[in-house]
Design a binder for these strands. Sequence first.
DNA 1: TCTACTGTCCTATTGTCATAGGACAGATTG
DNA 2: CAATCTGTCCTATGACAATAGGACAGTAGA
Lengths: 170, 170
Amino acid sequence: MVFHVDFKSGKPVYLQLVDQVRYAAASGALRPGDLLPSIRPLAEELRVNRNTVAKAYTELESRGIIETAAGKGCFLKENDSPLNKQVRHKLLVARIDEAVVTAYQMQVGPEVLRGLVDERIQFFDRKKAGTQPGSESDPQEKEQIWTPTNPSSTFPISADVMENWTPSTD
Amino acid sequence: MVFHVDFKSGKPVYLQLVDQVRYAAASGALRPGDLLPSIRPLAEELRVNRNTVAKAYTELESRGIIETAAGKGCFLKENDSPLNKQVRHKLLVARIDEAVVTAYQMQVGPEVLRGLVDERIQFFDRKKAGTQPGSESDPQEKEQIWTPTNPSSTFPISADVMENWTPSTD
DNA sequence: TCTACTGTCCTATTGTCATAGGACAGATTG
DNA sequence: CAATCTGTCCTATGACAATAGGACAGTAGA
Protein backbone atom coordinates (compact mmCIF):
# COMPACT_ATOMS: atom_id res chain seq x y z
CA MET A 1 0.00 0.00 0.00
CA VAL A 2 1.53 3.25 -1.17
CA PHE A 3 0.25 6.47 0.33
CA HIS A 4 0.69 9.90 -1.06
CA VAL A 5 -0.49 13.35 -0.08
CA ASP A 6 -1.24 16.44 -2.09
CA PHE A 7 -0.59 19.58 -0.10
CA LYS A 8 -2.05 21.78 -2.83
CA SER A 9 -5.42 20.04 -2.87
CA GLY A 10 -6.88 22.05 -0.02
CA LYS A 11 -8.14 18.83 1.49
CA PRO A 12 -6.83 18.03 4.97
CA VAL A 13 -4.01 15.53 4.85
CA TYR A 14 -5.55 13.27 7.44
CA LEU A 15 -8.72 12.98 5.35
CA GLN A 16 -6.68 12.17 2.28
CA LEU A 17 -5.18 9.27 4.20
CA VAL A 18 -8.56 8.16 5.52
CA ASP A 19 -9.97 8.02 2.02
CA GLN A 20 -6.97 6.20 0.64
CA VAL A 21 -7.45 3.46 3.19
CA ARG A 22 -11.22 3.39 2.66
CA TYR A 23 -10.85 3.10 -1.10
CA ALA A 24 -8.07 0.56 -0.81
CA ALA A 25 -10.24 -1.57 1.46
CA ALA A 26 -13.22 -1.32 -0.86
CA SER A 27 -11.14 -2.24 -3.87
CA GLY A 28 -9.40 -5.13 -2.14
CA ALA A 29 -5.95 -3.60 -2.29
CA LEU A 30 -6.06 -3.89 1.49
CA ARG A 31 -7.53 -7.03 3.01
CA PRO A 32 -8.74 -7.79 6.52
CA GLY A 33 -5.82 -8.51 8.81
CA ASP A 34 -3.35 -6.56 6.73
CA LEU A 35 -0.90 -4.52 8.74
CA LEU A 36 -0.91 -0.83 7.96
CA PRO A 37 2.30 1.20 7.99
CA SER A 38 3.13 2.33 11.50
CA ILE A 39 2.57 5.93 12.32
CA ARG A 40 6.04 7.33 12.70
CA PRO A 41 7.71 5.86 9.59
CA LEU A 42 4.73 6.75 7.43
CA ALA A 43 4.70 10.29 8.77
CA GLU A 44 8.37 10.63 8.02
CA GLU A 45 7.97 9.25 4.52
CA LEU A 46 5.11 11.63 3.76
CA ARG A 47 6.85 14.56 5.44
CA VAL A 48 3.95 15.23 7.79
CA ASN A 49 3.67 15.25 11.56
CA ARG A 50 3.04 11.89 13.20
CA ASN A 51 -0.13 13.28 14.78
CA THR A 52 -1.55 13.88 11.35
CA VAL A 53 -1.19 10.19 10.54
CA ALA A 54 -2.39 9.30 14.03
CA LYS A 55 -5.48 11.40 13.48
CA ALA A 56 -6.25 9.57 10.27
CA TYR A 57 -5.88 6.22 12.03
CA THR A 58 -8.05 7.34 14.92
CA GLU A 59 -10.70 8.42 12.47
CA LEU A 60 -10.51 5.07 10.70
CA GLU A 61 -10.82 3.22 13.98
CA SER A 62 -13.87 5.24 14.98
CA ARG A 63 -15.45 4.24 11.70
CA GLY A 64 -14.72 0.61 12.44
CA ILE A 65 -12.40 0.23 9.46
CA ILE A 66 -9.18 -0.55 11.27
CA GLU A 67 -8.19 -2.01 14.59
CA THR A 68 -5.37 -0.52 16.55
CA ALA A 69 -3.26 -1.89 19.38
CA ALA A 70 -0.57 0.08 21.13
CA GLY A 71 2.75 -1.66 20.77
CA LYS A 72 1.57 -3.86 17.93
CA GLY A 73 0.24 -1.71 15.14
CA CYS A 74 -2.87 -1.04 13.09
CA PHE A 75 -4.70 -3.73 11.16
CA LEU A 76 -7.52 -3.68 8.67
CA LYS A 77 -10.62 -5.06 10.30
CA GLU A 78 -13.24 -7.37 8.87
CA ASN A 79 -15.73 -5.19 7.06
CA ASP A 80 -18.46 -4.49 9.58
CA SER A 81 -19.61 -0.99 10.37
CA PRO A 82 -20.42 -0.16 14.01
CA LEU A 83 -23.60 1.54 12.81
CA ASN A 84 -26.98 -0.11 12.83
CA LYS A 85 -28.75 -1.00 9.64
CA GLN A 86 -31.02 2.01 9.58
CA VAL A 87 -28.17 4.47 9.96
CA ARG A 88 -26.02 2.71 7.38
CA HIS A 89 -28.89 2.90 4.93
CA LYS A 90 -29.42 6.59 5.63
CA LEU A 91 -25.74 7.35 5.17
CA LEU A 92 -25.60 5.48 1.89
CA VAL A 93 -28.73 7.09 0.50
CA ALA A 94 -27.24 10.49 1.27
CA ARG A 95 -24.20 9.66 -0.87
CA ILE A 96 -26.37 8.31 -3.64
CA ASP A 97 -28.55 11.40 -3.61
CA GLU A 98 -25.46 13.55 -3.81
CA ALA A 99 -24.39 11.63 -6.89
CA VAL A 100 -27.84 11.84 -8.47
CA VAL A 101 -28.07 15.59 -7.91
CA THR A 102 -24.55 16.06 -9.22
CA ALA A 103 -25.44 14.04 -12.30
CA TYR A 104 -28.36 16.36 -12.93
CA GLN A 105 -26.18 19.43 -12.61
CA MET A 106 -23.46 17.90 -14.74
CA GLN A 107 -26.10 17.34 -17.40
CA VAL A 108 -25.77 13.61 -17.26
CA GLY A 109 -29.02 11.77 -17.85
CA PRO A 110 -30.34 8.83 -15.80
CA GLU A 111 -29.31 6.22 -18.36
CA VAL A 112 -25.74 7.42 -18.53
CA LEU A 113 -25.65 7.73 -14.75
CA ARG A 114 -26.77 4.13 -14.35
CA GLY A 115 -24.09 3.11 -16.79
CA LEU A 116 -21.42 4.97 -14.89
CA VAL A 117 -22.53 3.43 -11.62
CA ASP A 118 -22.30 -0.02 -13.13
CA GLU A 119 -18.89 0.81 -14.48
CA ARG A 120 -17.58 1.97 -11.12
CA ILE A 121 -19.08 -0.98 -9.26
CA GLN A 122 -17.30 -3.28 -11.67
CA PHE A 123 -14.13 -1.28 -11.34
CA PHE A 124 -14.00 -1.96 -7.63
CA ASP A 125 -15.25 -5.52 -7.85
CA ARG A 126 -12.80 -6.47 -10.53
CA LYS A 127 -9.93 -5.31 -8.37
CA LYS A 128 -11.25 -7.26 -5.43
CA ALA A 129 -11.52 -10.46 -7.46
CA GLY A 130 -7.94 -10.00 -8.58
CA THR A 131 -6.68 -9.89 -5.02
CA GLN A 132 -8.44 -12.93 -3.61
CA PRO A 133 -6.00 -15.30 -1.94
CA GLY A 134 -4.86 -17.95 -4.39
CA SER A 135 -5.56 -15.93 -7.51
CA GLU A 136 -2.78 -13.39 -7.41
CA SER A 137 -0.83 -12.91 -10.57
CA ASP A 138 1.79 -10.22 -10.18
CA PRO A 139 2.61 -9.37 -6.57
CA GLN A 140 3.40 -5.84 -7.59
CA GLU A 141 -0.15 -5.37 -8.76
CA LYS A 142 -1.29 -5.33 -5.16
CA GLU A 143 0.57 -2.07 -4.72
CA GLN A 144 -1.10 -0.41 -7.65
CA ILE A 145 -4.07 0.89 -5.76
CA TRP A 146 -6.30 3.57 -7.03
CA THR A 147 -6.80 6.83 -5.16
CA PRO A 148 -9.69 9.27 -5.33
CA THR A 149 -9.31 12.34 -7.52
CA ASN A 150 -11.67 14.74 -5.80
CA PRO A 151 -13.05 13.18 -2.66
CA SER A 152 -13.98 16.53 -1.19
CA SER A 153 -17.69 17.03 -1.58
CA THR A 154 -17.54 20.79 -1.43
CA PHE A 155 -16.25 23.54 -3.65
CA PRO A 156 -13.71 24.95 -4.11
CA ILE A 157 -12.82 21.93 -6.14
CA SER A 158 -9.40 20.43 -5.92
CA ALA A 159 -6.39 21.69 -7.76
CA ASP A 160 -6.19 18.84 -10.26
CA VAL A 161 -9.73 19.54 -11.33
CA MET A 162 -9.18 23.27 -11.53
CA GLU A 163 -6.38 22.69 -13.98
CA ASN A 164 -8.97 21.54 -16.47
CA TRP A 165 -11.29 24.43 -15.93
CA THR A 166 -12.63 26.24 -18.96
CA PRO A 167 -15.05 29.16 -18.82
CA SER A 168 -17.88 27.51 -20.69
CA THR A 169 -18.99 25.20 -23.52
CA ASP A 170 -18.19 21.54 -23.78
CA MET B 1 -39.49 27.09 -1.50
CA VAL B 2 -39.09 26.72 2.24
CA PHE B 3 -35.60 26.90 3.68
CA HIS B 4 -34.52 25.72 7.05
CA VAL B 5 -31.22 25.51 8.88
CA ASP B 6 -29.94 23.17 11.53
CA PHE B 7 -27.43 24.86 13.78
CA LYS B 8 -26.61 21.61 15.58
CA SER B 9 -25.61 19.77 12.43
CA GLY B 10 -22.04 21.02 12.40
CA LYS B 11 -22.44 21.77 8.72
CA PRO B 12 -21.91 25.42 7.77
CA VAL B 13 -25.21 27.23 7.32
CA TYR B 14 -24.29 28.62 3.93
CA LEU B 15 -23.60 25.11 2.63
CA GLN B 16 -26.92 23.90 3.97
CA LEU B 17 -28.59 26.58 1.89
CA VAL B 18 -26.49 25.76 -1.17
CA ASP B 19 -27.51 22.12 -0.99
CA GLN B 20 -31.16 22.92 -0.45
CA VAL B 21 -31.18 24.95 -3.64
CA ARG B 22 -29.20 22.31 -5.53
CA TYR B 23 -31.53 19.53 -4.47
CA ALA B 24 -34.62 21.64 -5.11
CA ALA B 25 -33.38 22.39 -8.62
CA ALA B 26 -32.60 18.75 -9.31
CA SER B 27 -35.99 17.65 -8.06
CA GLY B 28 -37.90 20.30 -9.96
CA ALA B 29 -39.17 22.09 -6.86
CA LEU B 30 -37.33 25.06 -8.28
CA ARG B 31 -37.51 25.72 -11.99
CA PRO B 32 -35.38 27.90 -14.28
CA GLY B 33 -36.43 31.50 -14.01
CA ASP B 34 -37.87 31.12 -10.53
CA LEU B 35 -37.11 34.00 -8.20
CA LEU B 36 -35.30 33.02 -5.02
CA PRO B 37 -36.06 34.73 -1.72
CA SER B 38 -34.11 37.95 -1.41
CA ILE B 39 -31.19 37.96 0.91
CA ARG B 40 -32.32 40.16 3.79
CA PRO B 41 -35.83 38.78 4.39
CA LEU B 42 -34.56 35.21 4.17
CA ALA B 43 -31.72 35.95 6.57
CA GLU B 44 -34.18 37.45 9.02
CA GLU B 45 -36.53 34.52 8.73
CA LEU B 46 -33.73 32.03 9.33
CA ARG B 47 -32.16 34.14 12.09
CA VAL B 48 -28.79 34.29 10.37
CA ASN B 49 -26.67 37.15 9.13
CA ARG B 50 -27.47 38.41 5.66
CA ASN B 51 -23.89 37.74 4.59
CA THR B 52 -24.39 34.07 5.34
CA VAL B 53 -27.23 33.95 2.84
CA ALA B 54 -25.26 36.13 0.46
CA LYS B 55 -22.36 33.70 0.65
CA ALA B 56 -24.64 30.82 -0.24
CA TYR B 57 -25.96 32.74 -3.24
CA THR B 58 -22.47 33.70 -4.35
CA GLU B 59 -21.46 30.06 -4.16
CA LEU B 60 -24.49 29.05 -6.21
CA GLU B 61 -23.72 31.68 -8.80
CA SER B 62 -20.11 30.52 -9.08
CA ARG B 63 -21.42 27.04 -9.75
CA GLY B 64 -23.65 28.37 -12.49
CA ILE B 65 -26.84 27.39 -10.69
CA ILE B 66 -28.36 30.80 -10.14
CA GLU B 67 -28.12 34.19 -11.78
CA THR B 68 -27.97 37.29 -9.66
CA ALA B 69 -28.64 40.93 -10.49
CA ALA B 70 -28.21 43.75 -8.01
CA GLY B 71 -31.49 45.57 -7.51
CA LYS B 72 -33.54 42.78 -9.06
CA GLY B 73 -32.86 39.54 -7.22
CA CYS B 74 -31.61 36.00 -7.74
CA PHE B 75 -33.06 33.63 -10.27
CA LEU B 76 -32.58 29.98 -10.99
CA LYS B 77 -30.64 29.57 -14.22
CA GLU B 78 -31.13 27.08 -16.98
CA ASN B 79 -29.23 23.99 -16.02
CA ASP B 80 -25.84 24.32 -17.64
CA SER B 81 -22.64 23.94 -15.68
CA PRO B 82 -19.77 26.31 -16.50
CA LEU B 83 -17.40 23.35 -16.42
CA ASN B 84 -16.27 21.52 -19.49
CA LYS B 85 -17.36 17.99 -20.19
CA GLN B 86 -14.21 16.33 -18.95
CA VAL B 87 -14.33 18.09 -15.61
CA ARG B 88 -18.04 17.44 -15.15
CA HIS B 89 -17.40 13.78 -15.80
CA LYS B 90 -14.55 13.68 -13.33
CA LEU B 91 -16.59 15.39 -10.64
CA LEU B 92 -19.50 13.02 -11.14
CA VAL B 93 -17.35 9.90 -11.07
CA ALA B 94 -15.85 11.09 -7.78
CA ARG B 95 -19.32 11.24 -6.25
CA ILE B 96 -20.24 7.86 -7.65
CA ASP B 97 -17.05 6.30 -6.31
CA GLU B 98 -17.78 7.78 -2.93
CA ALA B 99 -21.19 6.13 -3.01
CA VAL B 100 -19.76 2.81 -4.17
CA VAL B 101 -17.12 2.77 -1.45
CA THR B 102 -19.69 3.75 1.14
CA ALA B 103 -21.94 0.94 -0.04
CA TYR B 104 -19.12 -1.49 0.48
CA GLN B 105 -18.47 -0.24 3.99
CA MET B 106 -22.18 -0.20 4.80
CA GLN B 107 -22.26 -3.84 3.76
CA VAL B 108 -24.58 -3.20 0.88
CA GLY B 109 -23.96 -5.40 -2.13
CA PRO B 110 -23.82 -4.29 -5.77
CA GLU B 111 -27.33 -5.48 -6.59
CA VAL B 112 -28.93 -3.61 -3.70
CA LEU B 113 -26.82 -0.56 -4.52
CA ARG B 114 -28.03 -0.57 -8.09
CA GLY B 115 -31.58 -0.86 -6.81
CA LEU B 116 -31.13 2.08 -4.47
CA VAL B 117 -29.64 4.19 -7.24
CA ASP B 118 -32.63 3.44 -9.45
CA GLU B 119 -34.94 4.28 -6.60
CA ARG B 120 -33.30 7.64 -5.95
CA ILE B 121 -33.15 8.52 -9.65
CA GLN B 122 -36.86 7.85 -9.87
CA PHE B 123 -37.47 9.80 -6.69
CA PHE B 124 -36.01 12.92 -8.24
CA ASP B 125 -37.47 12.34 -11.68
CA ARG B 126 -40.95 11.73 -10.38
CA LYS B 127 -40.91 15.04 -8.55
CA LYS B 128 -39.70 16.78 -11.66
CA ALA B 129 -42.49 15.31 -13.75
CA GLY B 130 -45.01 16.46 -11.17
CA THR B 131 -43.88 20.05 -11.45
CA GLN B 132 -43.86 20.44 -15.21
CA PRO B 133 -46.01 23.37 -16.32
CA GLY B 134 -49.51 22.20 -17.10
CA SER B 135 -49.40 19.05 -15.01
CA GLU B 136 -49.55 20.43 -11.49
CA SER B 137 -52.05 18.89 -9.16
CA ASP B 138 -51.85 20.46 -5.72
CA PRO B 139 -50.06 23.82 -5.66
CA GLN B 140 -49.00 23.17 -2.10
CA GLU B 141 -47.06 20.16 -3.24
CA LYS B 142 -44.55 22.45 -4.90
CA GLU B 143 -43.52 23.70 -1.49
CA GLN B 144 -42.92 20.22 -0.13
CA ILE B 145 -39.36 19.93 -1.21
CA TRP B 146 -37.04 17.36 0.13
CA THR B 147 -33.82 18.29 1.87
CA PRO B 148 -30.65 16.26 2.34
CA THR B 149 -30.17 14.40 5.59
CA ASN B 150 -26.41 14.13 5.77
CA PRO B 151 -24.80 15.89 2.86
CA SER B 152 -21.53 16.25 4.68
CA SER B 153 -19.08 13.71 3.37
CA THR B 154 -17.02 13.59 6.52
CA PHE B 155 -17.46 12.30 10.02
CA PRO B 156 -18.52 13.28 12.59
CA ILE B 157 -21.86 12.44 11.14
CA SER B 158 -24.74 14.81 11.60
CA ALA B 159 -26.83 15.01 14.73
CA ASP B 160 -29.95 13.43 13.27
CA VAL B 161 -27.95 10.39 12.30
CA MET B 162 -26.21 10.16 15.64
CA GLU B 163 -29.58 9.93 17.34
CA ASN B 164 -29.98 6.53 15.78
CA TRP B 165 -26.59 5.27 16.78
CA THR B 166 -26.29 1.88 18.35
CA PRO B 167 -23.00 0.30 19.39
CA SER B 168 -23.17 -2.68 17.09
CA THR B 169 -25.26 -5.40 15.47
CA ASP B 170 -28.05 -4.86 13.00
C1' DT C 1 -36.33 62.52 -7.77
C1' DC C 2 -37.14 60.23 -3.68
C1' DT C 3 -37.80 56.01 -1.40
C1' DA C 4 -37.37 51.37 -0.76
C1' DC C 5 -35.98 47.55 -2.40
C1' DT C 6 -32.28 44.58 -4.52
C1' DG C 7 -27.19 42.59 -4.16
C1' DT C 8 -21.93 43.85 -3.12
C1' DC C 9 -17.80 45.11 -0.85
C1' DC C 10 -14.79 45.84 3.16
C1' DT C 11 -13.38 44.77 7.53
C1' DA C 12 -13.54 42.63 12.21
C1' DT C 13 -14.31 38.88 15.38
C1' DT C 14 -14.93 34.47 16.69
C1' DG C 15 -14.25 29.77 16.77
C1' DT C 16 -12.58 25.57 15.09
C1' DC C 17 -9.56 22.76 12.31
C1' DA C 18 -5.15 21.07 10.98
C1' DT C 19 -0.83 20.52 12.31
C1' DA C 20 3.05 20.30 15.53
C1' DG C 21 6.30 18.69 19.50
C1' DG C 22 6.97 16.76 24.18
C1' DA C 23 6.04 13.24 27.39
C1' DC C 24 3.80 8.92 28.48
C1' DA C 25 2.20 3.86 28.17
C1' DG C 26 1.75 -0.87 26.25
C1' DA C 27 4.22 -4.72 23.58
C1' DT C 28 8.04 -7.11 21.69
C1' DT C 29 12.71 -8.76 21.34
C1' DG C 30 17.21 -9.69 22.74
C1' DC D 1 15.69 -5.85 32.40
C1' DA D 2 16.93 -2.70 28.66
C1' DA D 3 16.18 -1.09 24.25
C1' DT D 4 13.08 -0.06 20.88
C1' DC D 5 9.43 -0.61 18.71
C1' DT D 6 4.16 0.37 18.78
C1' DG D 7 0.09 3.90 19.68
C1' DT D 8 -1.85 7.80 23.03
C1' DC D 9 -2.49 12.01 25.50
C1' DC D 10 -1.78 16.95 26.40
C1' DT D 11 -1.04 21.40 25.03
C1' DA D 12 0.20 25.11 21.80
C1' DT D 13 -0.03 27.70 17.60
C1' DG D 14 -1.03 29.20 13.07
C1' DA D 15 -4.34 29.51 9.55
C1' DC D 16 -8.60 29.78 7.78
C1' DA D 17 -13.60 29.30 7.77
C1' DA D 18 -17.91 31.07 9.29
C1' DT D 19 -20.31 34.63 10.68
C1' DA D 20 -21.30 39.48 11.58
C1' DG D 21 -22.23 44.76 10.92
C1' DG D 22 -21.42 49.13 8.37
C1' DA D 23 -21.33 51.49 4.14
C1' DC D 24 -21.96 51.42 -0.82
C1' DA D 25 -24.19 50.66 -5.53
C1' DG D 26 -27.65 49.28 -8.95
C1' DT D 27 -32.89 48.97 -10.01
C1' DA D 28 -37.82 49.77 -9.80
C1' DG D 29 -41.80 52.28 -8.95
C1' DA D 30 -44.55 56.17 -6.87
